[in-house]
């Protein structure tokens, strides 16, 4: 997979969908493409944040809580670790490769300077994050209503 295809994948990620393709190209260029073997960890909960990941090929599982139980599965084109990166907080969960995985690591020290450098990019990311928050709030409201009915 070449740089061009990586840019295509990033473009399909909602957080970046509206960002200028030229910026995404720089983002991809400055990112590392890494391959993980089955069972290899991307990171453990509590680790310092070194960046966000985009899965290009393969699947991974998110493990959380003290028992490290499975809470979600990730597949191609999925982005993870971005919240920790933006908030500069330790990882809240662990992520482990399920089978061989190829992923793009967007390093924190590339992404954050780009946000400050390109305000329009920061704006697009903010809008997308706000949408996400809106959806989460919506879901919360619906759930609360359902619970009340029961």
């Amino acid at each position: 997979m070449s740089l061009k295809e990586e840019v295509e994948v990033i473009k399909r990620i909602p957080l970046f969908s509206k960002v200028d393709p030229a910026r995404l190209k720089l983002l991809a260029f400055a990112s590392d493409r890494l391959t993980y073997a089955d069972g290899q960890f991307f990171f453990h909960s509590g680790d310092q944040c070194d960046g966000a990941y985009v899965i290009l090929e393969g699947e991974a599982e998110v493990l959380a809580g003290e028992a490290q139980s499975l809470v979600a599965k990730l597949g191609p084109n999925d982005l993870f670790g971005e919240i920790g990166m933006i908030c500069n907080k330790p990882r809240s969960a662990s992520v482990r490769a399920l089978g061989a995985v190829t992923a793009l690591r967007i390093p924190t020290d590339v992404f954050m300077p780009m946000l400050t450098k390109f305000p329009e990019m920061a704006m697009e990311v903010t809008i997308e994050l706000a949408h996400r928050l809106e959806r989460t709030t919506q879901q919360l409201v619906e759930r609360t209503a359902e619970n009340a009915k029961q």
Partner: peptide
């Protein structure tokens, strides 16, 4: 062509520029 596309509107003193 790629370099010009990626870097021509980045300040040359910028860290991204120097690194990449």
């Amino acid at each position: 062509e790629l370099m010009v596309e990626l870097f021509s509107d980045i300040d040359p003193g910028d860290e991204l520029f120097e690194r990449f």
